[in-house]
Design a protein around this nucleic acid. Sequence first.
DNA 1: ACGCGATGGTTATACGTATAAGCAGTTGAT
DNA 2: ATCAACTGCTTATACGTATAACCATCGCGT
Lengths: 331, 331
Amino acid sequence: MNAKPPTSLDVARLAGVSQATVSYVLTDRPGTRISDETRARVREAADRLGYVPHAGARTLRTGRSGLVLMSMEDLPYGPLAVGALEGLDRELSRRGYTLVQYGARRLRGVPAARAWAELRPVAVVAGAGKLSRQAVDVLRSAGVRAVVAIGNRPSAVVPSVVLDHAGVGALAAGHLIDRGCRRLAAVVPTETGLREMGEHRLAGALQAAQARGVPVTRADLPFREDGAAALLDLWRSVDGVFAYNDDYAMLLMAVLRDAGVAVPGDLRVVGCDDLPLAALLRPRLTTVRLDVSMAPSLIVQRLEELMEAGDSAAPDRIDPWTATLVVRESS
Amino acid sequence: MNAKPPTSLDVARLAGVSQATVSYVLTDRPGTRISDETRARVREAADRLGYVPHAGARTLRTGRSGLVLMSMEDLPYGPLAVGALEGLDRELSRRGYTLVQYGARRLRGVPAARAWAELRPVAVVAGAGKLSRQAVDVLRSAGVRAVVAIGNRPSAVVPSVVLDHAGVGALAAGHLIDRGCRRLAAVVPTETGLREMGEHRLAGALQAAQARGVPVTRADLPFREDGAAALLDLWRSVDGVFAYNDDYAMLLMAVLRDAGVAVPGDLRVVGCDDLPLAALLRPRLTTVRLDVSMAPSLIVQRLEELMEAGDSAAPDRIDPWTATLVVRESS
DNA sequence: ACGCGATGGTTATACGTATAAGCAGTTGAT
DNA sequence: ATCAACTGCTTATACGTATAACCATCGCGT
């Protein structure tokens, strides 16, 4: 019942050739001279036995593994992230790499890097937050040829994919000002995972508005009705608000309706993410849509450059999404 | 610059011992007799060199890998799934296993199984849909000791974690009938990824209602306003509706408000998932909350049993969540 | 008849680890 | 004093693969 998995040697015996020949046939490098007849025999023997190569042994022999590790923590899971992830997987597997999501939740810094290094991946993609200088050194010395960070701001130590949240804020603020708003507010969520992105969106809004002489008030907000209701004075004192994202925009609009503040009459509201639900609101929500369809190929391209070059150039950045405004009724 | 990663032999040389001793020290099995002094010397040499063991080599030697593979496709990513995933990761790593999410999007059936088998995982967790008899055989013959499926219905070939969607439907329907409803409707989404779960929730509602002599009308619905609006006659002809989930409930309530149907006066509405947004609706949405906090330990426990037993018993099932009603204003 | 370049393989080896088996040196019981 | 049992290591080997290096056979031009 529990026979050991067949090896290339078993295949060789069945096909009546040497183990080396099996290896040559199955890893079909250009320039190997094995007759078509033998190739066929080997192939048939292989799937007769249900032969599956042993990735560990291959890694041991060749020194590299074809594995690309990606940290699976703190991803803001949503349609956007999942779509990008699938694209990345597709793009990498097309080129012969294997994308694997690896949870290093409990581990920070060097211990996490060690755990990753055990698998001898060829490349690592991780949140910018957890890539310290030492962690990257551990990875490098374990043979990892490319490390890229993904985050809100560029990592100091490795090339980074930077999600341009400031641009989102700027786009929203610009739109509100175009609509005639002269006193803006911008929501910054107080939730741990969201706060930092909120800061960046605020910063973008601030800069865009300042350039046109419009003040922006910052509104720190937990995702709760009473929190939003407590700031009612603020909402009444401005004429446009960028709500961080659609969820917060919906929270805000529920509170505003209860308080009798008219949207967009008294206050114009812009969200972000273009959730399906955003179009169901009354008034329908104006929002910023993020398009990440280009991200996977950009990331993979950068990874391949790094794997070629080995010791990278200075850390640089890629901007993998484009933001566009979806104007509806709330602004 | 690009020196090879240090091996246990390098550590041995630095510590002045043999490679075997290093191995004995670092894989600290009970019953090995190495002096404390030597242990300390080895450990110090190891982290001086930044030694990281080579997972592939270890797998090759021992025959097993400590890797637990989980398919990352068709997960309904949301707070629920992500929470369960993190729990699973934590639970497994506590016991010395490594959870890895593996994307086999493009691969179905046997080819996918082969790709998984290359990594010689000790266990595999996958969507019930993609585990054919042959695929499981491939995994088994590659030394995988435990395979479990996750899905809406039990897999025929392996033990399964079955998410009890029928129970959700029954709970919602029962509640509506308790509230006095006598003609129910249940939404089944037409989206590919959701349809099957919708069917199961419908079936549960149907059964529960039938037992109490209440008819249930099925409403196939795409997630679009015009789709929901087209069924206005249906909504007017019933007095309670289970909307599949909170998203659909919100869609429905937007349409109902536009049409002047009073909720809960004319029609009671129940959703599912307890999204934060559900409490922001007016009227506030009654919903079914799913608690998966027990799921990770249940799954891991079952996995360990299977790994002990080797050739499993008959495929059985685990029910990893509990559903409770959160009653608000919409019902 | 001879060498010579293809052609189609085979033999041998190394990758890094875990562990069985062996072997000095010490201790303790008789 | 002798042997057995322990302590603390070392030596040797196997896991499955890829690939360099070697070798036999053949066709062919001179």
